[in-house]
């Protein structure tokens, strides 16, 4: 085996400096993807920067307007955080049903985002909650909306000298939910998932955000459908107009893929279960 350089910085500034000075470093977060890729020789690395000792990346902090989730917060940590369960129920559900306990104990929200898998569970939830990503580098801080990051991925994706440090979610009091359809419940990688965040007043929709995952190269929001739901009664959210709109969105996104006929049907049930989990607590099994 050739020589590999392994860094384990304890401070964010140290990591940022290493990123600046090192050509093509592999950033190690939870390792649940990277270690497999290295071991199966799908990825060659020369320098590894292990982020697991940087305490500031493992914290969840709350202020009046937002919650800041460090990129090295694990899915197990997300499940255990009372504010996430109370105010960001969709994210709680996503974390609770994320893979098996051993993976939840290691896999990080930052790793899930940066891998940019079409089926990344946390991304639709963060999109529906109007979340933002915070990147740091020697040049300073870059903040970008999750929706914009993925809708313009080639331009906005993480730069070689950057590190994702935080995910910011505004405390808007949204009712939020999430549902994933996999082959084996939570253990499986999502075949399709949906996240819904909404605000209602006296049974009327004031605002709704719907994000879909695993139905395109990256998760996305269905803004056209969201718009037509505003100022409608809650019952409208399960109407044929909305469901057909979702079916059309999925068709347009993956019309040339063999999974399209299945997914354009499945999205309707997945969305309704996500919606119901937002409105009525957990129906996610």
């Amino acid at each position: 085996m050739e020589s590999i350089i392994f860094h384990q910085p304890r401070y964010l500034g140290e990591a940022i400096q290493l990123l600046h000075e090192t050509p093509n470093p592999a950033l190690l977060a939870g390792g649940t993807d990277l270690i497999i890729d290295i071991n199966k020789e799908r990825k060659k690395v020369e320098t590894v920067i292990d982020l697991s000792r940087i305490e500031v990346l493992k914290t969840i902090t709350v202020n009046e307007i937002e919650i800041e989730i460090g990129s090295m917060v694990t899915f197990a940590n997300l499940c255990e955080n009372p504010i996430i369960k109370q105010e960001f129920f969709g994210l709680f559900l996503c974390a609770k049903h994320f893979a098996a306990p051993q993976i939840r104990n290691m896999a990080t929200i930052g790793g899930n985002i940066i891998n940019a898998s079409a089926a990344a569970d946390s991304v639709p939830v963060i999109m529906s909650l109007e979340g933002k990503f915070v990147f740091n580098s020697v040049e300073g801080e870059r903040i970008i909306c999750a929706v914009e990051y993925f809708s313009n991925y080639e331009k906005e994706k993480i730069k070689p000298h950057e590190v994702l440090t935080k995910i910011k979610l505004p405390r808007k009091g949204y009712l939020s939910g999430f549902y994933k359809l996999g082959k084996r419940n939570s253990l499986a990688i999502a075949r399709i998932n949906a996240a819904v965040s909404l605000k209602e007043k006296e049974g009327v929709v004031e605002k709704i955000n719907i994000a879909l995952g695993a139905v395109g190269r990256y998760p996305f929001r269905v803004t056209e459908i969201e718009k037509i739901c505003v100022e409608k009664p809650l019952s409208y959210l399960e109407s044929d107009e909305v469901l057909i709109g979702l079916e059309t969105a999925v068709y347009e996104s993956i019309k040339n893929r063999p999974t399209m006929p299945f997914k354009k049907e499945a999205v309707k049930g997945v969305y309704i279960l996500a919606l119901q989990s937002a409105l009525g607590g957990e129906l996610n099994g």
Partner: peptide, 22 residues
């Protein structure tokens, strides 16, 4: 598969997914 499960600082992990250096 979980055959390589060990407990690290009180939590289960898959030891095939963790570098010893970490």
């Amino acid at each position: 598969c979980g055959a390589c499960t060990v407990i690290m600082d009180g939590r289960t992990i898959n030891s095939c997914l963790v570098l010893a250096a970490s």
